[in-house]
Design a binder for these strands. Structure first.
Lengths: 201, 201
DNA sequence: GCGCAAATCTTTATGCTGGCAAGATTGGAT
DNA sequence: ATCCAATCTTGCCAGCATAAAGATTTGCGC
């Protein structure tokens, strides 16, 4: 990590900055993740991010335009991260579903922003593209199901049902709405629930 | 509708108020629903509610304490409304599940607040109580399933899977994340998806 | 009716936030 | 060495949440 000089301070010629020049966007996004994990996306404050990262209050605005711009970048990052996670989980639909829930729990801040389109510009082309990449990764898992049922549109229903059940479980888990007697490890509980939808032969 | 006199205005002795005295909390909650449906719960502003209802900016604070207090009341109202809706849907698990999704779509503002505990005081006793009433109504629907499987904890898994799939479908629908080729009527699409989890014998 | 306490609502004030505009500094390209 | 664009700071303004204090209305005992 290199420390670079920073501009004027009263009485001090040079100060240091704990990140490479030009990396402020990434640093701000990381600070946003931390802040959201602490108090939720609704309580996020650009000025608080600036304080956390030691820059002026207007620095975040320069890079992201406005608050919605920052959350848009966070959503894009989240969808890409989700796509990578699902792809890495392999071909087994159970594993993909568990990976979805695991992503939501481990990247809670990203996940909460991603599915709250009133907070960011969900119609931005980079968002749409990232969403499609994540959707394709999810559909890949569904495609591995044995196509023994002949009804048309069955694969689409399977995909929608799989997405719904893992997304629902993840959001219920994150919102703390689940009763206390549910398995403490969300991955184990999720696997049990998903297996109820796609029972082994 | 009775119009009551209002306090001093410069040069005018009495003015009228379009609601019964003491009904301001209910009026404010209704205004909050409208505002949330327009711009989401994150953009809700107490001062905007005051303007919408024609009262001073501090009137909402008097009744609900603060913004979280207002959303707490909205969440309680939502959970009670959900419990009533699920109970009225009957005993068929499919009908109960469709009613859950239908509630989310028709009472979008309540639903969005209910499962966003960072916005209100989710640990308040009246919230817990209302949550349990809604949970009991949901479990009633699951209890009507034929208990032909002998594995222990199966009913709990069924309930969790049912809740997850309807909740996930509802939140995905509300967030606009579903692909465009999904059935336009959420009740029909939801029924198809739920049937995938609980296929008819 | 009368008077008083409580509830209801307004006014005033303070600190924080988002967004805009202008200026200072830095880094890189030529 | 010089210029330019990107980066970041300072200053500013309007809107918001919240608190405190004052004004008005309502309910209630008499």
């Amino acid at each position: 990590m290199v420390f670079l000089s920073m501009q004027s301070y009263p009485g001090v010629m040079t100060v240091t900055r704990p990140y490479h020049h030009g990396d402020l966007p990434r640093v701000l996004l990381q600070a946003a993740v931390t802040a959201i994990e602490e108090a939720g996306p609704a309580a996020l404050s650009l000025r608080d991010l600036a304080r956390r990262t030691g820059v002026s209050h207007a620095a975040p605005t320069h890079h992201f335009g406005d608050k919605a711009g920052l959350l848009t970048a966070l959503a894009v990052e989240g969808f890409d991260l989700l796509a990578a996670t699902l792809t890495a989980a392999g071909d087994d639909l159970l594993d993909v579903g568990v990976a979805y829930v695991d992503f939501a729990v481990r990247h809670r801040a990203h996940f909460e922003v991603m599915f709250r389109p009133d907070l960011y510009r969900a119609d931005a082309p980079e968002v749409r593209a990232a969403q499609e990449r994540a959707g394709a990764a999810l559909h890949t898992g569904v495609a591995t199901l044995p196509p023994d049922r002949a009804e048309p549109g069955e694969a689409r229903t399977d995909a929608l049902a799989a997405w719904s059940i893992v997304h629902g479980f993840a959001t219920l888990w994150l919102s703390g709405a689940l009763p206390a007697d549910v398995e403490a490890d969300p991955r184990i509980a999720a696997r049990t629930v998903i297996r109820r939808l796609f029972p082994p032969p």
